[in-house]
Structures are given as structure tokens and as C-alpha cells.
């Protein structure tokens, strides 16, 4: 790949990351917040693949596989917690799940 394609790909990763970031901050539904965090993580994964292909090394893709594995583990724990919260509160609004203040 040429240098300009690399930069474009890195820019794409950056835009995806920002989209995820903004959506974590404005969404109030916990499931959507989890999805947005996933988008951020995958954007980081994409950046790793771009970096790996810039230096023609497999390391970037190895890191991507690590990120995928970690994200899967995280989502499974997260969904279990969300189920538990839904059982107790009957809502997934993150403002409702806020007993602790100060």
C-alpha cells in the first residue's frame, strides 16, 4: 500500500474511534453504550492492522486477534451484568441505575 492509503486508513480508524467516543458519551441505554465501546475497540484494532501493514509485520494482526478475544470476554460479562440490572430495575436507562452519588 502507498503512504497516502495508509494515512487514509489511519484516518478512517480515527473517525470510527471518535464516533464510538461521542456515542458512549451521549447514549443513555446501557446496551448502546456497550456497543459504542465495542466500536472504539474495533477502531483501535483497525489502527493496529494499518500499522502492521505499514511495517509489513504480522504483529498488528496478532494484536487485533487479542483485541477480539478480549472484547468477546468483556461483552459476555457485560451482558450478564445488564441482564441482572434489568431484573432489578426493569429498565436499561443508565440514569436509573444510579444509586450512588457524591
Amino acid at each position: 500500500m502507498s503512504a497516502s492509503t495508509m494515512e487514509a486508513a489511519l484516518l478512517l480508524a480515527g473517525v470510527l474511534f471518535m464516533l464510538g467516543l461521542i456515542s458512549v458519551l451521549i447514549r443513555r441505554n446501557i446496551i448502546f453504550m456497550l456497543i459504542s465501546v465495542e466500536i472504539m475497540l474495533n477502531a483501535a484494532g483497525l489502527a493496529f492492522i494499518v500499522a502492521g501493514s505499514r511495517w509489513v509485520q504480522p504483529d498488528g494482526q496478532v494484536m487485533f486477534i487479542f483485541i477480539l478475544t478480549m472484547a468477546a470476554a468483556e461483552v459476555s460479562v457485560g451482558l450478564a451484568l445488564i441482564l441482572q440490572i434489568y431484573h432489578q430495575l426493569k429498565t436499561l436507562d443508565s440514569d436509573a441505575a444510579s444509586f450512588m452519588k457524591g
Binding site: L10, A13, F17, A44
Partner: peptide, 13 residues
């Protein structure tokens, strides 16, 4: 973690 990973990717790049 996403911030950390993106930062690491940029350093690697």
C-alpha cells in the same frame, strides 16, 4: 482500554 489500545497503535505506527 480503547484509548490505551489506540495510543499503542499510533506509537506502533
Amino acid at each position: 482500554s480503547a484509548f490505551l489500545l489506540f495510543g499503542m497503535a499510533l506509537v506502533y505506527y
